[in-house]
Design a protein around this nucleic acid. Structure first.
Lengths: 334, 334
DNA sequence: CTGTTAGCGCCTTCAC
DNA sequence: GTGAAGGCGCTAACAG
């Protein structure tokens, strides 16, 4: 590895002069400067950022830590990147692990020290595990679970989104709406918050809430959603609407309905949550709750930036508003 | 920040003893060890990885650098991560930039030095730009463009994949097949290689090749694909098959065809490339070329690992084989 | 304008 | 089994 002192020797100057040329910190005489640049070029010198970071005590880098790189998280990450870069920092993504169990081991607390700030997407971490995350670095949590109070946290208006989607289908005539991928848990989780919104929509409309219509799924994949819905159809439980907890689930539902000859929206209305890009293109277009990636990204980066700038107010808990995007999978959509 | 010497002072030992306790490098007496651990706990010490990296001269981290985080790249990344971790290293993702122009400036060469090895996805970089990437660190290129010979490189069998898909549709009766999203470029690019496969399939079948059927699109989004295909339909150019250069494009095509009442596969057969997860769920299921993410990931990580282990043979240029997954969007699919 | 000194936090090497 | 010195590569602060 070529170091600054190699360059300094080659150019016949001191290391500091090399540093000053490269960082334009202190002015350097033109001829000296030229010699240094020539030496840099000749030796192919590149600054060692590890050393610079150690010296500076910061890395100008923010990490976004997600359970997996694809789908939802990839889309959020693309929103976050430019916001981080606008503050002159880099964004890197790290993946915790597929196994929710070992989520925290995969990204050790020590690793967080590599970054000036961390955005941590809490998929499989409960508050108890989170409270053990003690790091001096600013950290903002993203996600739908409950988190300890002292963390900054951005979450979605899950309940409201589910309510909007369900109320929309009720208004358009559905009376027996499955909550596919939702759960009856009492704690705050994505799947239970969305189920609550489904319930509220029913109550608001004066309709009964039937727990048999809450259909959990084992894994949050389209494939599982498809086979689960096929089971429901086979069971004979009558339904004329589906609120899918995520668009990935809605996609599996689309496939299941098509394979059974059920028409969307004529026989069954369908709405999802996440407004993935594919949802606008899968015929007839899937009505979906837009999770406001942009807003989430802005809030999260905003909070993190404030902390990194030294702000030390009380932790904030932001609930980002959502909206319903109506498409052809519900009646009245285009 | 709590450092080792803080812990050492608290425990009444030397820094080296703390280091030895934590790294289990040299044996430490049980009572001393206990005091050290107590001090670590009391102060909440976490090792400073930046310092360790500088000292060690390596970071045990591999970077995957991609043009964007979503879609295709997210899926590849999820394949690569476990392979990198199997070698005891971490994987981080960095994004070059939305602007294809400034791709290399966004991730400076200096930044590559932060990693023990780099997997670089070359979307918008031409060979000339790449040859200026001089880094002492092992680097493996991924992607469909031509690259300078001295780089290890993994690419897909683009031409063969496109040929398979097109031949399949010809065999099932299509005679006028659009190459949507392909280009007539002479240089090796994803879009031109796939167009060549489309041509070869026509020649093999004794069918004429009509350049009017090569329809480039301005940006590689479903939305652009949809509007471009609508234009083609409006132009009156007759077609009974579509080879879409990517599944994202195929998705846009599905939406366009549905909005014009064209049935898939009865009126128009459709095949894509990438075998995105959504392609199995969008009715009637999109026939697609599987890009063999697993194989690409294994080759790429294998090459990189060999280099990081000090291997210095000639650069390898791997072409990963692909296969066709037949679904309902072509006749004969389920 | 250029050079010298010192130290970021850690760990290899060597002494005790 | 434990401690002291030294340096990884860089740059802030000061000296000349």
């Amino acid at each position: 590895m070529v170091t600054m002192s190699d360059v300094a020797r080659e150019a016949g100057v001191s290391v500091m002069t090399v540093s000053n040329v490269l960082n334009e910190r202190l002015p350097v005489g033109a001829p000296t400067r030229a010699r240094v640049l020539a030496a840099v070029e000749a030796l192919g010198y590149e600054v060692n950022l590890t050393a610079r970071h150690l010296r500076a005590g910061r890395t100008d880098t923010v990490a976004l830590i997600v359970p997996s790189f694809h789908d939802y998280f990839g889309e959020v990450a693309d929103q976050i990147a430019p916001l981080v870069e606008a503050h002159g920092r880099h964004l890197v993504l790290e993946r915790t692990s597929a196994s929710a169990q070992h989520e925290m081991e995969a990204v050790s607390v020590a690793r967080l020290q590599l970054y000036d700030g961390v955005l941590l997407s809490v998929a499989g971490l409960d508050p108890e595990q989170l409270s053990r995350v003690r790091t001096s670095k600013p950290i903002v949590l993203l996600g739908e679970r409950d988190v300890p109070d002292h963390f900054d946290h951005v979450r979605l208006a899950n309940e409201e989104g589910a309510r909007l989607a369900t109320a929309h289908m009720i208004e358009r005539g559905s009376r027996r709406i499955l909550a596919l991928g939702c759960t009856l848990d009492r704690t705050h989780m994505m799947t239970s918050d969305r189920r609550v919104g489904w319930e509220v929509a029913h109550r608001d409309a004066g309709l009964p809430v039937d727990d048999r219509y809450v259909v959990p799924i084992a894994t949050y994949s389209s494939e599982t959603a498809r086979s689960t819905l096929l089971d429901v159809i086979a069971s004979g439980l009558p339904f004329d609407g589906i609120f899918a907890a995520t668009d990935v689930i809605a996609l599996g539902a689309v496939a299941a309905l098509a394979s059974r000859g059920l028409r969307v929206p004529d026989d069954v209305q369908l709405a999802g949550f996440d407004n993935l890009e594919v949802s606008s293109f899968v015929p007839p277009g899937i009505t979906s709750v837009d999770p406001n990636h942009r807003g989430v990204a802005q809030h999260a980066v905003g909070l993190l930036h404030r902390r990194m700038a030294g702000g030390d107010g009380p932790a904030e808990h932001v609930v980002a508003p959502v909206s319903l995007v109506v498409r052809g999978s519900t009646r009245g959509g285009r």
